[in-house]
Amino acid sequence: MKPRSRIHTIEAIVYPIVGIVAVLGLWQAYVTVFAVNPIVLPGPIAIAKASVKHFDTLLEQTWPTLAESIYGFALAVLIGVPLAVCVANSRILNLTFYPILIATQSIPKVAVAPIILVWFGVGMESKLVIAFLVAFFPIVVDTATGLRATPPGLLELARSVSASPSQTFWKVQFPAAMPFIISGAKVAVTLAVIGAVIGEFVGSNEGLGNLLLAANSQLDGPLAWAALVWLSILGIGLFFLVVVAERVLMPWGHH
């Protein structure tokens, strides 16, 4: 059993790398063979070179975007989870707020971004708010779904030992909803990065999104792509933070 699982781990590492190398190789080959203009599409090597050359700038511009994403995401969790608790536990609150929630969700965030910018200025706050707005919905919906999906057997168990409502919530309902909350958070954290970049596109003077726009307008294809790559790494990094949180918060979850 042990050697078998080791083979699986090796496979889980080797095959993705093979896939990535293959795609990068084809990409580079295409760009080199057809001598594609780097403004249109730079090759992986050119992008890597730009990453190294502009390393300081890229790193410097990563921090604002990272902060906007994290703050927006954190705010979405801090407000979204308690709101979901209210909505899931009260029929009246559910009837009152759920339609509003759905309605606000159907507003395209990109269209709201300019208004947010007017309200909160070109600084960090407007990005944070947009990141919050896009991250908020999956957190609320998944948390509320999870809180309603408590296995009835566990609720009956709690009742059979006369657990109080708050004991039932904290010891049964909430931990049972944890997998749902985490999966909401995984979606939300990726969306938060997108929200931050939307904010930077609409108006800002810093951040990776801003750098990408600036590089694009200066026809610096490799730098624009390098910013894009860094943005992806940022998103992946934040996603893995949530995965780490998942392992800490619910060690029972991965078999």
Binding site: E156, L157, V161, Q167, P175
Partner: peptide, 25 residues
């Protein structure tokens, strides 16, 4: 009460599952 299903909480180990009523009380 013993139910038809074991109704153990997946997030607790066996001992903490057994101790659940004591925790509530």
């Amino acid at each position: 009460f013993v139910f038809q299903q074991a109704n153990l909480m997946p997030w607790r180990n066996v001992l903490d599952n057994v101790l659940f009523p004591m925790e509530i009380l």
